[in-house]
Design a protein around this nucleic acid. Sequence first.
DNA 1: TATGAATGAGGCTTCATTCAT
DNA 2: GATGAATGAAGCCTCATTCAT
Lengths: 218, 218, 218, 218
Amino acid sequence: MTRSSQIAAGKVAKLNRVERNAWTKRRIFDAATKIVGKYGYAEASVARITEEAGVAQGTFYNHFDNRQQLLDQLLPKIGIDMVHFIRERTGTAHAARQEIERFSAFFEFIREVPEFLRILNEAEYFAPIGYQKHLDNVATAYVRILRRARQAGAIEDFSDEEFEAIVHMFMGARGYLSRRYSYADGAVTAVSDHVISAYRKLVTRGLFTPDTDNGHGR
Amino acid sequence: MTRSSQIAAGKVAKLNRVERNAWTKRRIFDAATKIVGKYGYAEASVARITEEAGVAQGTFYNHFDNRQQLLDQLLPKIGIDMVHFIRERTGTAHAARQEIERFSAFFEFIREVPEFLRILNEAEYFAPIGYQKHLDNVATAYVRILRRARQAGAIEDFSDEEFEAIVHMFMGARGYLSRRYSYADGAVTAVSDHVISAYRKLVTRGLFTPDTDNGHGR
Amino acid sequence: MTRSSQIAAGKVAKLNRVERNAWTKRRIFDAATKIVGKYGYAEASVARITEEAGVAQGTFYNHFDNRQQLLDQLLPKIGIDMVHFIRERTGTAHAARQEIERFSAFFEFIREVPEFLRILNEAEYFAPIGYQKHLDNVATAYVRILRRARQAGAIEDFSDEEFEAIVHMFMGARGYLSRRYSYADGAVTAVSDHVISAYRKLVTRGLFTPDTDNGHGR
Amino acid sequence: MTRSSQIAAGKVAKLNRVERNAWTKRRIFDAATKIVGKYGYAEASVARITEEAGVAQGTFYNHFDNRQQLLDQLLPKIGIDMVHFIRERTGTAHAARQEIERFSAFFEFIREVPEFLRILNEAEYFAPIGYQKHLDNVATAYVRILRRARQAGAIEDFSDEEFEAIVHMFMGARGYLSRRYSYADGAVTAVSDHVISAYRKLVTRGLFTPDTDNGHGR
DNA sequence: TATGAATGAGGCTTCATTCAT
DNA sequence: GATGAATGAAGCCTCATTCAT
């Protein structure tokens, strides 16, 4: 606390009022991410968060109306990072292969931002507003992807409503798998190959139309 | 407290000591189920539970070592009910069809015991011991089912480790879907047909070997 | 608890009603001695005592009016044992030497009944009635001894009231020394020689008349 | 609470933040002194202390980590006052007479700070850390005094280790006597002359070398 | 007499939030 | 805007004692 707040003071010396303000808010936000990621929402007290951020408790309320308001912002903000992260790691070629890439990228993202796991999974009950926002973000984008694949002929026989169900299955499976397979001694590890291969089989056979073009098929 | 304790007194008049003891413990347990189902683990204070049960707060500790110990019993106990419930609703004929039956039965169970949803989904962080116990119960049984299906030729090309991954995907998908689709105005509703049909397509094509016998395949 | 209560049941099988009653009371009493000796009065809850005794909590109140009543009996009862113990170890010859014997015997007693230490030292505030009783017992007897020594010419120049003060000094010193010097790693050890020799010098010179007879003097 | 907090508000109006902080901490500390002195450690609940101090219960934890931490500070702090008090009342002339002065001053101090008695005597079990600290303070200083007296020829024939034992005897005797003789109807009274004279005889003869210089000896 | 479940008061501590500086 | 002390409600748990069996 002492050390980091000194660093903070050093860094912030040359900032103007607006910048300093934003910077403080950001510190609190990042601290909350860390704390919730580590201890969960229920244990993320304002005292803990502000201590981690190196600011006084009262400062918290200069930037957020109340504790819940901050908690509700956590997931959507990181969720957007996730979407970008995955998008960057998704090629353009083959629809089924893209899905596997997205799947893998999800786990890669968790390794980059290990806090995301718990923030996501507890959010439903502890940050319902943020959770809903995040879900809409992701589900909408995901369904759109599947629709395009269908237009391109890579998927047949699934209705829009079924897409939505599928997307939820995928999201549920991911969240769950990540909790099951990504941990080892508290640290986050890579997900095992069996999970990837099982997913590939299930999805390429279950959702996508078998490849007819030669050369590309897995 | 007043109303329920009167009921209690009426009902309990003719019980002997052992029975009365078991009955009180059961009341507390049921109250906890209700409270956790409704408000979640974090809000399930001993005060709330005992008030719901119509007993004094101190009574709680005559039956459970501490709050957590009770919370950890919740999921495994209901989980067993769930396994039985699903087993009863699963026919013997066709492996893929059985899987759909299990899927549907899960949602039926949730309608019967709506508390299960939240008890299950929050358990990972709030009742980790119970969660692990439940998971082992379910995953082990589930993998065994898939193995048998493989022996019977209904599944090909999946290893044991992949089965485990698949099982976790299925469980994750179910939990997630149930949270998405089962609620309407606080009450629990039936899951929609699209979810069932999407699941059927994904699973029968993705996991199971296509039917070669004529007449049975749906 | 289970094992000891079984032993208890075995031993008690052949006792009649009165004997069994006394035996149960004794068990509770001994358990209290042990618990208070180990944890102090404040931590000696009825639950702890009855558990140690292997009886139900309710049984306690068949033998004692309340917790305090038992606590008040502890010190006087053991105090009497102590007086006997010391008396047995005190020779008849030389008055000053007797005093040193008494001093040493006190520490020996503590090794025999290590619980005594804490029971004695906390009693003043936690079992004031028993404490007063014990004090009267001991002080009266002690003053009587000093008076006799004065009559025999072994002490000069001390009034009765000064005797009383001296006795309290001695008792205070003993209790205090025992706490300082008798412990090592939780177990009770013998008191060191320096303490004995310092006491001998202080008392033989300070209280008793110098020996004039030859051969007996130290 | 009402009355005292009004007084508080009046007194505190013109203090700045740091002063106010120290002042509140001091109020809690003083309240604890009073409560422990009156009811003992075991009955000195945070609720009682804060009520006496005229602050909210939560305020306690802004100034002390926990209840025990405060309790452990009580004795050392007052103990230092005592050492100063006694030192001020000790002349420089005669070693033996100094010891009597110290003895008397101890009882005078108790009349000034009557809470000290119980705070000291219960500390061993209820504030062991503070007790140890206090003991070290006092015993070290005391032994040093005796050593100097030995160097000056006022004491002969006692080793350092025996000094330590003697010091503990003196401390034990004082504590004990104070409890015996200083009370009357709850208030603290002067210790009687017999106690002083008995102590003088015991100590001047038992510990110190008889005066050879003429005129000074008592 | 022995049992042990029931009671509810009271223990310590943490909490989110307010507000004067 | 930043601070951090103050608040009092609420959390979990232990306690001595009672009483029906």
